[in-house]
């Protein structure tokens, strides 16, 4: 993971520069749209100045994906999903690469599992099984496909995408930060408690201080009729949550498999004093 982050740090500015290098466009419409896009992103996201410049960019070239996408983002963040979707649909129609962002946001902000999966599967097919990453960088989009299927109750199909993605990452030695956690919770939901424990233990090796993992380990041991081990895990989860560790949290939305302190305390409360 460290190498992956370093790689991203070194590569990102170059990529961004390449993405916004307007000289790459040979036709006037795209070049003008690109120059106006570059001016727009200098202003605060969602500000009048920026939206007006995106408007002008799209007058120059109505299918200019970067402007359609960037103009859509503040609508998404402010809960105006009509205008967000209108703009992203146009971006996707112009270039299917925007399926990644639309599919990811349908999952994260709207919990629209079927349409999110449809977008990501379409991209998966186009990209020959490598749809890329979520825009926050947390997830290979195959993990989101797996989570979509899990939330729709299709555990077998969910596990298929999880395993395919994780096997691919294990070969490259860069498994996602939460991949084993989500795989473990999926096994837990499918009532494969031994499988879930194996996954969650792998997650503890990946991210030792994540409280959420120990909570789910506790649930597995509880389901297996091992209350002593379960309690140990819940105590560890609480210690990490409140003192020495971390827990899943995101400024925009509740995270998949996010655990609250009240969840842990409720389980501990069942053991009595």
């Amino acid at each position: 993971m460290r190498y992956f982050i370093l790689l991203l740090l070194f590569c990102t500015p170059a990529l961004l520069k390449a993405q916004t290098n307007c000289d790459l466009y040979t036709d006037k419409a795209h070049k003008n749209a690109c120059l106006l896009y570059q001016q727009a992103i200098e202003y605060n996201q969602g500000s009048r100045e920026s939206q007006l410049l995106f408007q002008r960019s799209l007058q120059a070239c109505p299918t200019f994906g970067p402007s359609l996408h960037e103009m859509s983002v503040p609508y998404l963040k402010q809960g105006d999903f009509y205008n967000w979707k209108q703009l992203m649909d146009r971006a996707v129609n112009a270039d299917p690469k925007w399926l990644a962002d639309r599919g990811w946001c349908l999952f994260k902000f709207l919990r629209d599992y079927q349409n999110s999966f449809n977008d990501l599967k379409r991209l998966y097919d186009i990209a020959k099984g490598q749809p890329g990453y979520s825009s926050d960088g947390d997830y290979d989009l195959r993990i989101i496909m797996a989570l979509n299927q899990r939330y729709m109750g299709n555990y077998n199909l969910s596990l298929k995408y999880f395993k395919e993605c994780i096997a691919d990452h294990e070969k490259k030695n860069w498994v996602g930060l939460y991949d084993y956690l989500h795989l473990g919770v999926t096994h837990l939901l499918a009532q494969d408690y031994k499988g879930a424990i194996a996954d969650l233990q792998r997650e503890t090796k990946k991210y030792e201080k994540l409280a959420d993992t120990y909570y789910y380990l506790g649930l597995c041991y509880k389901k297996m009729g091992q209350p002593k081990k379960a309690k140990e895990q819940f105590i560890k989860a609480k210690t990490l949550f409140t003192k020495t560790g971390y827990h899943r949290n995101d400024p925009y939305c509740e995270e998949p498999d996010q655990v609250y302190l009240s969840d842990i305390e409720r389980e501990l409360g069942k053991f009595g004093r």
Partner: peptide, 17 residues
Amino acid sequence: MAQDITKAKSYPEQVGD
């Protein structure tokens, strides 16, 4: 007819105001 935000006559100081 669907509203097209790219053809709006004006925008608020900040989206969502």
